[in-house]
């Protein structure tokens, strides 16, 4: 296992065994993704109940993401509402052949959150600094535990645990650059300035880190995408 603090001495990861095999976890993730696509297709046809169900499946991780990005509970609520209203309106534009519902929604959510941060002219360093800088997520989580569904909680817990484990195994510099981009909404130029590292170094860290993540997260990337292509695109795919 690479040292979390080692610099760019880690070679690019070889293709992971997970890339070509269907593990039970990958199959479960695939089923979940297929259900999401069916619900999105129904929502695109104006099915409010399907959209409500989709909301219930996605609201937790999306709200958590937005709160982490904007760092303020009240502002996160506003952004979150905008996201889901936008989802309803944009549902007919979803293309199941191009992305999973989850990644499509995450892309929309991040875009909205970044727009919000830019409109306020501030980009909070909510994820790398001290206790004072830590977002309100931890405090808010106390109220969250009363309404969580056991199955969904387990699903998200499992997912989060897996991604965290893989993320933790990345060299610290790679992880930091990726998190600054993903949660901070920073461009590679801004990350370079923030970390006072050459642009080329930042790009290389992000490339290596993300490729390594892809190779070690079963059920994503090649796994699901290839399966979808091979199965001729399930419901939810748009021409």
């Amino acid at each position: 296992m690479p040292s979390p603090n080692s610099e760019e001495v880690v070679p690019d990861a070889p293709a992971s065994p997970a890339a070509g095999l269907r593990t039970p976890a990958a199959s479960a993730a695939e089923d979940i993704a297929a259900q999401d696509r069916r619900l999105m297709a129904a929502a695109a046809d104006g099915d409010h109940a399907a959209f409500a169900k989709l909301y219930d499946r996605l609201a937790g991780p999306i709200f958590s993401l937005v709160l982490r990005m904007v760092g303020d509970h009240a502002e996160a609520e506003d952004v979150f509402q905008e996201i889901f209203v936008r989802l309803w309106k944009s549902a007919p534009n979803y293309d199941g052949a191009q992305s999973s519902v989850f990644s499509w929604v995450v892309t929309i959510a991040r875009g909205k959150a970044i727009d919000h941060l830019r409109s306020r002219g501030r980009r909070r360093q909510t994820f790398t600094e001290s206790v004072d800088e830590f977002p309100e997520a931890a405090a808010a989580s106390a109220s969250a535990i009363e309404v969580t569904d056991a199955a969904l909680l387990a699903q998200h817990h499992e997912e989060a645990g897996l991604v965290r484990r893989v993320l933790t195994e990345l060299p610290g510099e790679q992880r930091e650059s990726i998190e600054l981009a993903f949660f901070g909404g920073l461009s590679h130029h801004e990350i370079s300035a923030r970390l006072q590292q050459p642009l080329g170094t930042v790009k290389a860290r992000i490339r290596r880190g993300l490729l390594r993540l892809r190779d070690h997260l079963p059920g994503r990337g090649l796994g699901i995408r290839q399966a979808e292509r091979e199965s001729g695109k399930e419901a939810g795919s748009r021409p």
Binding site: R68, S99, S141, E159, G221
Partner: peptide
């Protein structure tokens, strides 16, 4: 593929309902 991978990072945000 990388977009799908990046989206999974959302799960690492502290969970809040």
């Amino acid at each position: 593929d990388l977009r799908e991978t990046a989206a999974a990072l959302a799960h690492t945000a502290p969970p809040v309902t």
